[in-house]
């Protein structure tokens, strides 16, 4: 864990390092893979696997992507998502809710905004070293393999297999602190059609459109969100090595308005949710585990192999979410509560 010397490391990373510095440090193939969706259209089948300490889950979806920013995903598995469709157009995302005959409109955070991409890539370059790991074949395509080595731990955190011709990342494997595989996103099939028509991304006209209640709130700098929370919100005093606050906004879960802060080291991420209203954690697939956070009692659960740790200090309800592992989540929790 690294003690924060300045209140907003994100500003330091995004502003002082910036896109320009990132350009100097960039690995050409890695950068080409990151920006490939803005330049290359494709269609295929993707399988995503998350491997947790207690359970593993997998998603399978068909994807059609027209550069730069039109994407349609039709889910085939798991059963809970089968039949669901998500269409992303620019900075908006539309989730088709067929049982309710409606479309839920929300913000698309994955849009390849050059400013965000620049600061995120700068963060990645600051924390990871790129090492070529030879060649491979994924979905019948020749790939070049890139290992991303964490500069603090010296361990490989991600292995990316990049299509040698199109530069699309066809396989991404993420590894935990112990070196074990924790997730993989892999194209099982991919093709590069000459043309994808607008009709491939059309939305049903007879569905009602419902807006996400927090859609109007634009993401802000984490410091600004903490200041405007309306209650005594706290940011962590210490962060895992290489992590920085990158984004913040407000969300509403079951009527409870929450501050949401996202922290990242360029690859790994975790979120901190804070609310002045009390809430309890419910887990559908795993049992809750009781924990001590300083003088307070907390609960830990995993969902889709992602850890969720929630506790209250009596005035603020905190919830940490991320793939950084229970040990780091517990350290983060204690640094917030101290």
């Amino acid at each position: 864990m690294r003690r924060l010397s300045t209140p907003v490391v994100a500003v330091l990373v995004a502003a002082s390092l910036g896109f320009a510095t990132a350009k100097e440090n960039r690995d050409p193939l890695l950068f080409a893979a990151i920006v490939a969706p803005a330049n290359v259209s494709y269609a295929g089948v993707v399988q995503v696997v998350h491997i947790g300490s207690r359970a593993s889950e997998a998603d399978v979806y068909r994807v059609e992507h027209r550069a730069p920013d039109l994407t349609r995903r039709d889910y085939e598995a798991p059963a809970a998502l089968a039949g669901d469709t998500v269409v992303s157009k620019g900075d908006l995302t539309f989730s088709l809710d067929s049982p309710r005959h409606r479309i839920v409109e929300g913000r698309n955070d994955a849009v390849g905004d050059s400013r965000v991409l620049g600061s995120e890539y700068a963060l990645l370059s600051e924390n990871y070293r790129v090492v070529r790991r030879g060649d491979d074949t994924v979905a019948g395509r020749h790939t070049v393999d890139l290992a991303l080595i964490n500069k603090y731990s010296g361990r490989m955190t991600m292995l990316v297999r990049v299509d040698a011709a199109s530069k699309v990342a066809l396989d991404r494997q993420e590894f935990g602190p112990s070196g074990a595989l924790v997730s993989e996103t892999r194209f099982e099939q991919i093709r590069y059609p000459a043309q994808l028509t607008e009709a491939d991304f059309s939305l049903p006209k007879n569905f009602a459109v419902v807006r996400d209640p927090t859609l109007a709130e634009t993401p802000e700098q984490p410091d600004a969100v903490v200041t405007s929370a309306g209650f005594a919100a706290h940011a962590p005093r210490e962060l895992p090595e290489g992590f920085a606050p990158v984004e913040g906004d407000f969300v509403e879960l079951h009527g409870v308005r929450m501050l949401h802060l996202l922290y990242s080291d360029g690859i790994r991420t975790f979120s901190l949710f804070e609310s002045s209203r009390a809430s309890t954690l419910e887990a559908a697939t795993t049992q809750l585990q009781s924990m001590r956070i300083g003088d307070h009692s907390g609960e830990y659960a995993e969902d889709n192999a992602t850890g969720v740790l929630s506790w209250s200090d009596g005035s603020v309800q905190y919830t940490l979410v991320g793939e950084v592992g229970l040990v780091d989540l517990a350290h983060l929790a204690e640094s917030i509560t101290r």
Binding site: V86, D109, L124
Partner: peptide, 13 residues
């Protein structure tokens, strides 16, 4: 929100 990371997963529905 994490979907904005360079190799972030696609956001769920």
């Amino acid at each position: 929100m994490a979907a904005s990371a360079p190799f972030g997963d696609a956001a769920p529905p």
